[in-house]
Design a protein around this nucleic acid. Structure first.
Lengths: 116, 116
DNA sequence: CCGTATCCTGGCGGATACTG
DNA sequence: CAGTATCCGCCAGGATACGG
């Protein structure tokens, strides 16, 4: 009996992993969620400062995507001076286990390089 | 007292999330690990078949990267006919919680679109 | 402070053919 | 079957400037 016969080989177009990565898999996205969700860093320029290499253009795009996907929302808005703070939604909080497992893996196998 | 004063703002160059994503964050990588680790689909053309859109070139590149990073290894090799099977290493098995959390998130929030 | 508008380029990855 | 070799298009994302 063939081993692979035990596993129905279907194209997993709608695999939950693939779908999750469609939202979360883009460059910078997870790190932005880390800032907003973990570190409670929710201001635009603050996020920019904690993520060297990230440009305002890309941050703006990611925030819009995450907002549209219901993962973050503006929890504090005021004008003059314009002030915004981003926070996680209920759905956004459900991404934290993903970050946790990434931290666990990285800390375990790359402890030499991990500063925090 | 400023809120952000409570959080030391440092550039997280060596954040474990960033490091983990450096290895696992590339396109197709997580799905390849899903095949090898979860579904026990460890043959080259089999992986190709389960992941529509993935080309042999990219699969080859990803396998080399994962092998170099100690996440997968060849667990079965023979020639004539050439036969290879890929499997997870100890380190590779430690990535499964990441996949689990991606599945949990996707299944919960995109149940309509998730077929399996 | 919080973004958007413009411009531009490098390299990721898709297509295809080929080999042991 | 399990890959490698070549070629190439394209767009994600970086640089920079600007505006409310």
């Amino acid at each position: 009996l063939e081993e692979q016969a035990l596993i129905p080989v279907v194209p997993f177009k709608n695999c939950p992993i693939r779908i999750s990565l469609g939202v979360l898999g883009k460059k910078w996205t997870m790190l932005i969620i880390r800032d907003i969700g973990f570190l409670k860093i929710g201001r635009f320029n603050q996020i920019l400062r904690t993520l060297p290499g990230l440009t305002p253009r890309v941050l703006s795009m990611r925030l819009r995507e995450l907002e549209k996907n219901g993962i973050i929302r503006q929890i504090e808005v005021q004008s003059s001076p314009k002030q915004v703070r981003w926070g996680l939604t209920r759905k956004g909080r459900d991404t934290l286990p993903i970050l946790m497992s990434l931290i666990a893996f990285g800390s375990r196998w790359y402890s030499d390089f991990v500063r925090r």
